[in-house]
Design a protein around this nucleic acid. Structure first.
Lengths: 262, 262
RNA sequence: CGACACCGCAUUUA
DNA sequence: TAAATGCGGTGTCG
């Protein structure tokens, strides 16, 4: 499918997929998620150097979307992401109406997109342990977006290339849904790649994504309150009270300039 | 397409199609399905007599087939039919391997066929209301097979006559699929017609065939269990538990003598 | 190309 | 229990 890296390959994201180092995978089966004990950021064990030391370079962001009353009347939606273990590394946001229709899929896509934007911002902060960035391979940066949505992962890695080669039609001849978000997302990933920032996607089952799941649900509840006319401050009250240093993303400003959003 | 009956025609099945009485159709738009409040059998409002009374004579059987993993490895299939509203008027059966390849189309065809066989049996029972058969036109009997499979309906009414006139080839020159079932089915319909038992076909969309749909799905699940080596009693357990008086047809014995079955 | 089925997967909910 | 959001496929015919 995608090239098998060298045993000590310093790269773990290849063609938008996470490709663990051969030696690390042999020692630690399963997803190679790792929490930096100094800064709390989520990382992967990327490779093992000659000395035997584990080098962590790929940053991980857990992302999720939620949509209360999905498919019914009066849906409300939001997303939650976690770049690290502390609440200041968690972000929640309800949807803005400018995103158009609220559905679970649009919430999931937006969650992953915002995970990329804010994850990139966080990974540029230095860690007190290393007193440098967690990247130890020059300017190259790697960001792994974890989601429990197969839809997001496959859309961004498998389906969109096929749709492009098929006159932007799905296998059943329909125009793919949510192309506004997906295309914008795709453009951004390509743009970052040119700057040596490599974004990958990984699908996990829901119970492996608990933190982001809870954050997203809170965000959707805030959205519901806002739609019921509750003032913004009051709507966010419970979220802030339960996690005082939670980074509440007021609205997803990054996305407000999304063209053709509807 | 097919002849328009007299306004008070006592016949509603013409040339394998259901042809509602003009006056009934004017009064009750849509499919003329009707549940006898005494025996629970499904009927159609066939015609309105001089006195204004609605006469119900055509018996209706809802039929469906299901095939889990259709077109994939390890398919399992079954059919479900309903001649009336009570569970004792519902039948389910998993497929026997003697039916050859398990596909959705073979399941649909077999469901319709078995609907004819068992529907005919049930319609010969008297109704406590009429204290006679629901047929009030001498020996003539009418049985309408309802299916959500356009394939079944068209094969039995449109396509087979064309294939016969075309050296048993489809319009693309191929030999039609599932001819073993279709020909046997056709023979049976013709045979019954000579005994003044008229069988018709009606296509409805899937959501109008919910009962048979669920029965067929259960049957396919039983088939899956049997193929996984579950004992027959255990395989049927859940089906029987949820509907104690459900008429479980062990295997479709009517069909076992089907020639060239494969 | 169209139509009707039959599914499979993951998620979001009520 | 049951429904919606979305994708992928096969079975079949015209």
């Amino acid at each position: 499918m995608y090239p098998i890296p060298n045993r000590r390959s310093p790269c773990s994201i290849v063609n938008r997929h996470y490709q663990p180092c051969y030696e690390v995978a042999a020692r630690y089966p399963g997803p190679q998620f790792y929490t930096c004990s100094y800064c709390g950021r989520f990382l992967t064990r990327t490779y093992i150097s000659e000395s035997g030391a584990i080098h962590c370079r790929t940053h991980v962001v857990f992302t999720d979307g939620a949509c209360l009353n999905n498919g019914q009347a009066n849906p409300s939606a939001g997303w939650g992401i976690a770049t690290g273990a502390s609440t200041s590394q968690c972000y929640v946001s309800p949807f803005d109406c400018s995103f158009g229709q609220r559905t679970n899929q649009r919430a999931e896509l937006t969650g992953a997109y915002e995970g990329m934007i804010r994850g990139l911002r966080d990974m540029k902060k230095s860690c007190p342990h290393y007193e440098q960035l967690h990247t130890d391979n020059g300017d190259r940066m790697e960001l792994l977006l974890v989601t429990d949505s197969e839809y997001v992962t496959k859309a961004m890695t498998e389906w969109l290339p096929k749709w492009k080669a098929n006159d932007m039609k799905t296998s059943s001849g329909q125009t793919p849904a949510n192309l506004d978000i997906i295309s914008h997302f795709d453009d951004r990933v390509e743009f970052l790649k040119k700057q040596d920032v490599h974004v990958g996607f990984m699908h996990v089952l829901r119970h492996r994504n608990e933190l982001a799941d809870k954050l997203a649900k809170r965000a959707a509840e805030v959205d519901r309150k806002l739609m019921h006319g509750v003032s913004r401050d009051n709507a966010f009250d419970k979220v802030i009270a339960s996690s005082p240093d939670l980074a509440v993303s007021d609205f997803t400003s990054t996305f407000e300039r999304l063209p053709n959003s509807r």
